[in-house]
Amino acid sequence: MKIRIPATSANLGPGFDSCGIAVSQYLHIEVLENTKEWKILHSLGTDIPTDETNLLIQTALKLAPELSPKVLKMTSDIPLARGLGSSSSVIVGGIELANRLGNLNLSQKDKLQIATEIEGHPDNVAPAIYGDFVVASYIDGEVHSVKHHFPMCDVIAYIPDVQLLTAESRSVLPSSIPYKEAVQASSIANVMIAAILNGNLPLAGIMMEKDRWHEPYRKKLVPHLDEIRALGHKIGAYGAFLSGAGPTVLILSPEEKTDQMVQELEKLPLSATINVLSVDKEGIQVF
Rank of each mutant, 00 (worst) to 15 (best):
E52Y: 11
T53E: 12
T53Y: 05
N54G: 09
L55G: 01
L55Y: 03
Q58G: 10
T59K: 07
T59M: 07
T59Y: 03
T59L: 03
A60L: 08
L61W: 07
K62R: 12
K62W: 02
L63C: 08
L63Q: 04
L63H: 05
A64E: 09
A64S: 15
P65M: 14
E66C: 05
E66W: 03
E66I: 10
L67I: 11
L67E: 06
S68C: 03
P69F: 09
K70E: 06
K70G: 03
K70Q: 15
V71R: 15
L72Q: 06
L72F: 13
L72Y: 12
K73F: 09
T75A: 08
D77N: 15
I78N: 00
I78Y: 02
I78M: 03
P79F: 04
L80G: 00
R82Y: 07
R82E: 04
R82D: 01
R82W: 05
G83L: 08
L84V: 07
L84Y: 01
L84P: 02
G85Y: 05
G85D: 04
S86H: 07
S87W: 00
S88P: 00
S89G: 06
S89A: 15
V90T: 14
V90R: 00
V90I: 15
V90G: 03
I91T: 14
V92C: 02
V92L: 06
V92K: 02
G93T: 01
G93C: 09
I95Y: 01
E96W: 08
L97D: 02
L97T: 06
L97H: 04
A98K: 05
N99R: 06
N99C: 07
R100L: 15
R100F: 12
R100E: 10
L101M: 13
L101S: 04
G102P: 04
N103K: 15
L104Q: 08
L106K: 11
L106N: 06
Q108L: 11
K109I: 00
K109F: 02
K111R: 15
L112V: 09
L112P: 00
Q113D: 10
Q113M: 12
I114R: 03
I114K: 03
A115S: 14
E117T: 12
E117G: 08
E117C: 03
I118Y: 05
E119Q: 10
E119A: 09
G120F: 08
G120K: 14
H121Q: 15
H121T: 12
H121C: 10
D123C: 04
N124E: 06
V125R: 01
Y130R: 07
G131Q: 10
D132L: 01
D132Q: 14
V134C: 07
V134I: 14
V135H: 03
Y138W: 09
Y138C: 00
Y138M: 02
D140V: 05
E142W: 02
E142G: 00
V143Q: 00
H144P: 01
H144C: 10
H144D: 11
S145V: 04
V146D: 04
V146M: 13
K147V: 12
H148T: 14
H149L: 09
H149G: 03
F150N: 07
P151I: 00
C153P: 06
